[in-house]
């Protein structure tokens, strides 16, 4: 039952990623694309966690944590760039 659920949830997350990709290409403004990227990295953490459950291994935890941290920092840096035209003041 569990393996079936993991596959089902993975399909849901992949559909979510495709919708994000659509917004990334279609988004009328830079801020929309930024929001799509931000959502995409959270969804990819979800995929990695699901892979860990599927393979029954906790090794993927560090990768998920790294993506979470780098994703937040990159969102903050891009926001600053759009706000000020400069990242490091």
């Amino acid at each position: 039952m569990l393996s079936l659920t993991v596959i089902l949830v993975s399909i849901m997350v992949v559909i979510a990623l495709i919708l994000n990709l659509w917004r990334l290409f279609a988004g009328p403004d830079l801020a929309d694309r930024l929001l799509a990227l931000d959502t995409m990295y959270i969804n990819s953490i979800a995929l990695i966690i699901l892979l860990g459950i599927w393979l029954g291994s906790t090794l993927y935890f560090e990768a998920a944590l790294l993506i979470a941290m780098l994703g937040f920092v990159s969102t903050a840096a891009l926001c600053k760039y759009l706000l000020r035209g400069d990242i490091i003041e």
Binding site: M1, T5, V9, V13, W22, A36, A46, L50
Partner: peptide, 27 residues
């Protein structure tokens, strides 16, 4: 069963988040 329920709820919310991202009219 418990793990599956949590996984399903999580997946549904992630999907709803992305559907909202695609569907809603302004930023």
């Amino acid at each position: 069963l418990v793990v599956s329920v949590f996984l399903l709820v999580g997946g549904i919310f992630i999907l709803v988040g992305s559907i909202g991202l695609m569907r809603l009219p302004d930023f």
